[in-house]
Each structure stands twice: as C-alpha cells, then as structure tokens.
Computed example of a mutant assay.
Amino acid sequence: MKAKYYIADVFAEEKNGGNQLAVVFPKHELSDEEMQAIALEFHFSETTFVTGMKDDAYAVRIFTPAVEVPFAGHPTLGTAAVIAREYGLDSQTPIKLSLKAGVIPVTMSAGDGVLWMKQNQPDFGARYDIKTIAEKFGMYMNDFHPAYPPAVVSTGIPFLMIPLGGADALRHSQAVFSTGSGRVTKDMENPFYCFLPPEHPYGGTAAARLFAPQFGIAEDPATGSAAGCMGAYLTHYGPDKTIDIKILQGAEVNRPSVLYVKTTKTGEKFEVLVGGKVVFFSEGHVLS
C-alpha cells in the first residue's frame, strides 16, 4: 500500500501552532483496523482518510489514536483545505465533507484566509449544578463562573462544558481533569471542555482547554467541535442570541491556537459557524 498524506496545522495563525492533522488519500480501500493503525502511528489528535465521493461531497472518516469519531472540528476544516490543495480547487469554491455525523460545508472568507464550517444543530444534554461538579472532581465552588451552569452540549460529539471563573482555575484544570488526577477515568462518557467565557455576553475573547481521555487525547491543542458547542452554549444559556467570539487554546501544550465562532439563535434554530486558518507543514506517502 502506498497512500499520499499531508500534515497541516489547523487553527494556526502561523506554522508550528494550532492542532496537527494528517490527511491520508488511500489509493485502495483500507479496513477499519488499517486506518486505526495509521492514526495511531501519526498519533495526532485526529487523522482523516478521504475515501472517495458520496453524491457531491467528499467522503471522510476521522480517527483519533484510539477510536473513530463521527465528527471533529479541526479535522473537518483541515481536510477541506487539504482537498482544495490536492485537487487544485478555487479558494472560493465551497467544499462539502460527508462525515458519519452528516454533511458539513466548508467555505473560505475572502481576504483573511479564514476557513469556516457550518456545524450541525446543537443538542443540549444534562445540566448540572455547580456543587455537583465541584464535589465530583474535588474543585472549589469559586472555581466556576457563577452565571453559567456546567452542561453537556453536542454538535456531533457531546462535551461536558465547564465554565470557569478565572485564569487560575483554567490553569489548574489539567490537575483536575487529566487521567492522573485520580478523579477521571477513560470510561467517563464525555470529554471535558474547560473555558473562560468572553468578557461580554455578545462576544470578545474566550480561553479554553480540552481533556479527552476517552479518545486517547490527554489535552487537545484546538477543538473546533467544542468551540461550536461553546457558541451554541453561550446563546442558549446567555442573554444574547448573536455572538462573535475568538477562542484561545493550546498555549499550555506549546501549540497556540485561535478559533473564531459566530452563532445566531433564531427561535429554536441555531446557526453555528466555526472558523480558523490552516498552515501546510509537509506531505509524503504512507508505505505498507
């Protein structure tokens, strides 16, 4: 087997930032086991496989080092950018990816090089009181943001959204939500998205960290799927129904990342847009 691959930095403002992604173009059909083994070899947060066309969309499968996932943000954005490069597509041509979670369109805004994906309608799961989460994970009540509840949100992958009240709490979140803390196990249902909400209900700059032992990811440098969940969360639980935010993530793992989120809620419907830049790093071939 010989398959071309690209490595790209997604949600990166410059090279060696953002979340690394390998995108593989198999010449022949691969088994699930073969794709999982390749993803483990790359050992990035995710590796994608462009397996052909499905109607007018590119069929793509996404693997973490441990499992296949139906959707993830940086693989969606990064794979679209790589497809455009591989097939010489015009930067203004919308690209549709057919994922297990559904068809996701990706477009590029003119001038600034930001790619945007439109995420699925959010699903709002369990909501918890602060005391319950604080006691479960050995945190203090004042670690949490008082205006927002811990809650599960999904636009393809469910995350436990944990709004924190200050930079110290975010800094110490690794000690709480890493597998070495003694309070987190790989069989827990949802990854943990710890974040500082933006300074204004309608927007500004937020900061986040993502811990996903369930997927074999100790800490993710940039999490587009969770960023979309944050946008939906803020318009659902906050006072403003339109927000425009920038999320900083990844500095703690030396992969500084910037994610842009625009969300509008109209009645019970949401438009969730997540954007970022993609920097190409290398290309080569996977050998059998």
Rank of each mutant, 00 (worst) to 15 (best):
Asn19Trp: 04
Gln20Asp: 01
Leu21Ser: 03
Leu21Asn: 08
Ala22Ile: 03
Ala22Asp: 03
Val24Gly: 03
Val24Lys: 06
Phe25Trp: 02
Phe25Lys: 05
Pro26Arg: 07
Glu29Ser: 14
Leu30Cys: 02
Ser31Lys: 12
Glu34Thr: 01
Met35Thr: 03
Gln36Val: 04
Gln36Asp: 01
Gln36Lys: 07
Ala37Tyr: 02
Ile38Arg: 00
Ile38Leu: 13
Ile38Met: 14
Ala39Trp: 02
Phe42Thr: 04
Phe44Lys: 08
Phe44Thr: 02
Ser45Tyr: 06
Ser45His: 02
Glu46Asp: 12
Thr48Val: 04
Phe49Arg: 01
Thr51Ile: 14
Asp55Phe: 05
Asp56Phe: 03
Asp56Gly: 03
Ala57Cys: 11
Ala57Ile: 05
Val60Ile: 11
Val60Tyr: 08
Ile62Asn: 11
Ile62Tyr: 13
Ala66Ile: 01
Val67Thr: 15
Glu68Thr: 02
Glu68Ser: 10
Glu68Leu: 10
Val69His: 10
Val69Lys: 08
Phe71Leu: 15
Phe71Thr: 01
Thr76Met: 11
Leu77Met: 10
Leu77Phe: 09
Gly78Arg: 12
Ala80Ile: 00
Val82Ser: 12
Ala84Gly: 02
Tyr87Met: 12
Tyr87Asn: 07
Gly88Cys: 04
Gly88Ile: 05
Lys96Asn: 10
Lys96Glu: 07
Ser98Asp: 15
Ala101Pro: 04
Gly102Pro: 02
Val103Ala: 10
Pro105Gln: 12
Ser109Val: 02
Gly111Pro: 05
Asp112Ile: 07
Leu115Thr: 00
Trp116Lys: 08
Trp116Ser: 07
Lys118Tyr: 00
Lys118Gln: 15
Asn120Cys: 05
Pro122Glu: 13
Pro122Cys: 06
Pro122His: 11
Pro122Leu: 10
Asp123Trp: 03
Asp123Glu: 15
Asp123Pro: 00
Gly125Met: 10
Gly125Trp: 04
Ala126Gly: 03
Ile130Pro: 09
Glu135Asn: 13
Glu135Tyr: 05
Lys136Gly: 09
Phe137His: 11
Met139Gln: 12
Met141Glu: 15
His145Phe: 09
Tyr148Trp: 12
Pro149Ser: 11
Val153Leu: 13
Ser154Asp: 06
Ser154Phe: 01
Ser154Ile: 01
Gly156Phe: 06
Ile157Trp: 09
Ile157His: 08
Phe159Ser: 11
Phe159Cys: 08
Phe159Val: 02
Met161Leu: 10
Met161Cys: 05
Met161Ala: 02
Ile162Trp: 08
Pro163Met: 01
Leu164His: 09
Gly165Val: 07
